[in-house]
């Protein structure tokens, strides 16, 4: 039986080999690129791009960590770059081959998680804030407003330990990414108190319930919120006073890639203003590319005003002990 499978595998491999153009394997989040831009790159450089999508950083890491995944370019969230870098999974970016890096917004040219921009090129970013129904509730200003009994049964929080624990900590005046056990204990009490008011812990699925008016307020990612806000004019989005988390997905080249040169070419291509703008339009999220942003319509949901941006927090990666502690508390909250 093994031999048969083997022969079949060889056959499948052989049938894939008939296209002789050089190829590049790009693994990205779903709907994070304009397919036309991929095709245009294929035509320009006469290469073939195998474009795949993943659902979570963990799914991507599980493959990348083997060092034999076959992918050349992946898009980890900023906090995952450092651990990947430490494990030797990422190639160092060669700035000589990325002449268009200057198109990035100033804050992304030297971000706090990777000041010399060696690990990954900031690509798209989003924040967590509050969506609310303008017609039925007054505008919230703080995370603390999500503990209002008026929202009882018509409020949702994200189904995500980092975001939920983080804002409970912010409400108490502690750091978003605290790993202090006493502070996390207090955050858990807050979360349990709020849980009585919640309809559910929901991620992107809450979008339709917001549009239909069943849910009046929700903790939500700006990207999903923008879809809902553009789908129904009666919704608003705010960046809370206590601060809010920001996440940036970065284009990184895996060290295992035998096609470093072509991979750099593709990253530079993604930095072209027209390409970056087309991709941001499809992804419906905020681009890190300043030159592209001027080509896009302004958007108060996706791009916080400068003042609000100063309250933004880029959460760092947590070590595994802290992660386990947080996961345990999260389980206690959800089952409590």
């Amino acid at each position: 039986m093994n031999r048969r499978i083997f022969l079949f595998g060889a056959l499948a491999a052989a049938s894939c080999g008939k296209d002789h153009r050089p190829r590049l394997n790009v693994w990205n989040w779903s709907t994070y690129i304009d397919p036309e831009m991929v095709k245009a790159f294929e035509r320009q450089r006469s290469v073939r791009i195998r474009y795949g999508t993943y659902e979570s950083n963990e799914e991507m890491l599980a493959k990348a960590v083997t060092g034999n995944s076959g992918w050349d370019i992946v898009f980890p969230t900023h906090s995952r770059l450092a651990p990947m870098w430490r494990n030797g999974l990422l190639a160092t970016l060669d700035h000589k081959r990325l002449p268009s890096l200057h198109n990035l917004e100033a804050r992304f040219q030297s971000p706090e998680w990777d000041p010399s921009l060696r690990q990954g090129v900031p690509y798209m970013w989003n924040a967590t804030g509050i969506v609310y129904n303008k017609a039925q509730v007054s505008a919230p200003a703080r995370w603390a407003d999500l503990w209002s009994p008026a929202l009882s049964g018509r409020l949702t929080m994200l189904d995500d330990p980092e975001d939920v624990l983080g804002i409970c900590l912010l409400k108490l005046g502690y750091p978003f990414s605290s790993i202090n056990e006493a502070q996390l204990g207090k955050a858990k009490v807050e979360a349990l108190a709020q849980k009585k008011l919640l309809r559910a812990y929901l991620n992107a699925d809450v979008r339709d319930q917001l549009v239909s008016g069943d849910v009046l307020a929700a903790q939500l990612w700006s990207t999903t919120a923008a879809q809902a806000v553009h789908g129904g004019a009666k919704l608003g989005f705010i960046y809370p006073q206590e601060g809010f988390p920001l996440y940036c997905d970065c284009a990184a080249i895996l060290r295992e890639s035998p096609r470093q040169e072509l991979a750099h070419e593709f990253l530079d291509y993604l930095l072209q203003p027209g390409v970056a703008a087309a991709n941001a339009k499809v992804a419906e999220t905020a681009t890190a590319n300043a030159a592209a942003r001027v080509l896009l319509p302004s958007d108060d949901v996706l791009y916080p005003p400068l003042q609000a941006m100063q309250r933004g927090i880029w959460p760092p990666a947590l070590d595994s002990a802290a992660q386990r502690l947080r996961d345990r508390i999260w389980t206690e909250i959800k089952s409590g």
Partner: peptide
């Protein structure tokens, strides 16, 4: 199924 699953984060279209 993998393609569909990877769409979940943005809400299934």
């Amino acid at each position: 199924p993998m393609v569909i699953y990877s769409m979940a984060r943005k809400g299934v279209s």
